Amino acid sequence: MLELKGVVKCYGDIRAVDGVSMKVEAGTIAALIGPNGAGKSTTFRLISGLLHADDGQILWCRQRLESALTREQRGFLPEERGLYQAIEVEQLLRYWARLRNIDSSAIPAVLEDWISRFELDSKRRALVRTLSKGNQQKVQLAICLMHSPKLIVLDEPFSGLDPLNQDLVSEILLEQAASGATILISAHQMALVERVATTVTLMRAGRTMAMPAFGKSGEREADSLQRLVVVHIESGARLLLTDLPPHQVTHTADDKITLTFPAMRLAAFTDALAELAALDGVVDLEFSRPSLHRAYVESVSTNITGAGNGSSYT
Rank of each mutant, 00 (worst) to 15 (best):
L127N: 12
R129M: 05
T130I: 00
T130Q: 14
T130H: 11
S132V: 04
K133Q: 10
G134F: 02
G134C: 05
V139S: 13
V139W: 09
Q140E: 14
L141R: 06
A142M: 06
C144S: 15
C144M: 05
C144P: 06
M146C: 07
M146V: 06
H147D: 09
S148Y: 03
P149Q: 05
K150S: 09
K150C: 00
D155I: 05
D155W: 00
P157T: 02
P157Q: 04
F158D: 02
L161P: 04
P163H: 03
V169F: 09
S170M: 08
E171Q: 15
I172S: 10
L173H: 05
L173T: 09
E175S: 14
A177Y: 06
A181I: 02
T182W: 01
L184E: 07
L184N: 07
I185N: 09
S186E: 14
M190G: 05
M190N: 02
V193I: 12
E194W: 05
E194N: 14
E194K: 12
R195K: 15
A197E: 11
A197T: 08
T199C: 11
T199F: 04
V200Q: 10
L202Q: 13
R204H: 15
R207E: 10
R207D: 05
R207K: 15
M209F: 06
M211A: 14
A213W: 08
F214R: 07
G215F: 13
G218Y: 04
G218T: 11
R220W: 11
E221W: 05
L225W: 07
Q226K: 01
Q226T: 03
R227T: 02
L228Q: 11
V229N: 05
V229D: 07
V230C: 13
V231Q: 06
I233V: 14
I233G: 02
S235H: 15
A237P: 11
R238W: 00
R238Q: 11
L240Y: 09
L241N: 03
D243M: 00
D243V: 01
D243R: 01
P245G: 02
Q248L: 08
T252D: 02
T252P: 00
T252Q: 07
A253V: 05
A253F: 08
A253D: 14
D254E: 14
D255A: 06
K256L: 10
I257Q: 04
T258A: 12
L259Q: 09
T260H: 00
F261Q: 03
P262V: 00
A263F: 01
L266G: 04
